[in-house]
């Protein structure tokens, strides 16, 4: 059994875990949101590689082509990208409010401030 055809998923897993690491290991909230974006992009790449057909072309119907890539994942990811930027905007707005309220955007410092009476 050849495993070579699965390398696209392994790229996705690497990017996903890198984003995940940024989210769990870093305290800075802006960096956490960038990590979430990387995670998100890895999911986009996963869907788009699933939609790829060998020898296919972009799903715009023309007379000279017979094989097209799957258009459905493209539609889903088009929606997901725009939703992703909306949630990013909301997250960054929350970060600005947290900075105003606590004077820091480091997660552990905020936790320490909360524990003080």
């Amino acid at each position: 059994m050849s495993l070579f055809g699965l390398y696209n998923y392994w790229i996705v897993v690497f990017l996903m875990m890198a984003g995940f690491y940024v989210v769990v290991a870093h305290e800075n909230l802006i960096k956490k949101i960038v990590g979430l974006n990387v995670f998100q992009a890895s999911v986009f790449i996963l869907y788009i590689t699933v939609g790829k057909v060998q020898g296919g072309t972009a799903p715009i119907i023309g007379e000279n082509f017979t094989i097209y890539s799957n258009p459905l994942p493209h539609v889903l990811i088009l929606t997901a990208i725009v939703v992703g930027v909306a949630t990013t905007a909301l997250g960054l707005a929350l970060v600005i409010r947290i900075k105003e309220a606590y004077g820091t955007i480091e997660d552990d410092e905020i936790a320490a401030l909360e524990e003080e009476p």
Binding site: F44, G51, K52, A58, S69, L78
Partner: peptide
């Protein structure tokens, strides 16, 4: 490269 041109220009503009 993966034939998703619509997704590509949305990602370039938005992302």
């Amino acid at each position: 490269i993966l034939d998703a041109v619509d997704v590509a220009f949305t990602e370039a503009a938005v992302g």
